[in-house]
């Protein structure tokens, strides 16, 4: 399934004094089974954009085509079908929990979409394992869990729909570094092993660059660039100009090329590539 935006505008409260243009002239394609990151500052239109991906908002003008469904214009039934195929996890999804037990919480979506509950129940242990929860939580109330566990339950409640596309809005916000790393690994696994399209919306360039194979940079409701994360190193000045901070690794590379005259032609700034470049430079000696 491929997602295509064509000349998409979105305006909040059009023709009122409170009118607000959130998206303007967006055209781009998200290839099927890709891992795409949408980055931009707070207020750049990221969250308006992601709601177009499953028809929660529909373009004021232009079209969004998701697989066979085209927006605007889809009827209620295909729209609901679209929502099953595109799983959307909002920021702080733990705020949407409401059932008495974790199990009921997980079955909420499948019931709404009329999935085969027997099949879904058989699949519960796998989903719990994927998000790093123990099966013993199933009968517990979600509200007795820690914040991090609640987030995982909320995430599992969408994963269980086995959607082809997974859209995630700042999924690691509020987690500590270890919890964050685990979730990002899970998304990569879902993308690489299970062939799902993952769309990660974030303001964290580090996560975006480390995981995505396509990057969509959003600024003031417009597309600033569509690029591969590897090429982003070249555009770091442009990024800083629109208020996106490059990750520590990129700043590191910048500083060492300037101060030490290191010859940098790697695509990715990792611990290994940076260390190697430094050692090479030192071996070359003082009179280079």
């Amino acid at each position: 399934m491929e997602i295509v935006f064509k000349d998409v505008d979105y305006i909040y409260q059009p023709n009122t004094p409170l009118e607000h243009v959130a998206l303007q002239g967006l055209s781009f394609t998200i290839p099927s089974q890709s891992f795409t990151a949408i980055v931009g500052r707070t207020g750049s239109g990221k969250s308006t954009l992601l709601q177009q991906l499953n028809g929660l908002l529909q373009p004021t003008s232009g079209t969004v085509t998701i697989g066979k469904t085209r927006l605007p214009g889809a009827k209620a039934k295909p729209l609901k079908e679209l929502r099953r195929r595109v799983g959307l996890v909002f920021q702080y999804p733990e705020h949407q929990l409401f059932e008495e037990t974790v199990k009921q919480e997980l079955l909420f979506g499948p019931k709404n979409f009329g999935l085969d509950l027997g099949q879904v129940e058989a699949w519960l242990p796998q989903v719990l394992q994927d998000v790093g929860l123990d099966e013993s939580v199933l009968e517990r109330s979600p509200f007795t869990l820690s914040g991090g566990q609640m987030k995982r339950v909320a995430l599992a409640s969408v994963l269980i729909l086995d959607s082809e596309v997974l859209v995630l809005d700042e999924p690691t916000a509020g987690l500590d570094p270890v919890g964050k790393k685990q979730l990002l690994q899970l998304f990569r696994y879902l993308n690489e092993e299970k062939g799902k399209m993952v769309v990660l919306v974030t303001h964290n360039m580090e996560d975006a660059m480390a995981n995505a194979d396509q990057l969509l940079v959003l600024n003031n409701g417009c597309i600033e660039s569509v690029t591969s994360p590897k090429r982003l190193i070249e555009k770091r000045d442009q990024l800083e100009a629109i208020g996106l901070a490059p990750p520590e690794s990129i700043k590191f590379v910048d500083y060492m090329t300037q101060t030490l005259g290191v010859n940098w032609n790697e695509h990715e700034a990792t611990v290994d590539t940076v260390s190697q470049a430094l050692i090479k430079r030192i071996k070359a000696g003082a009179n280079k």
């Binding site: 611990v271 290994d272 430094l278 050692i279």
Partner: peptide
């Protein structure tokens, strides 16, 4: 539960070398 910063990891790599 803490993640060493990028610079700390590079530093470790360099001392290992």
């Amino acid at each position: 539960g803490l993640e060493p910063p990028f610079v700390t990891k590079v530093y470790q790599q360099l001392t290992r070398q």
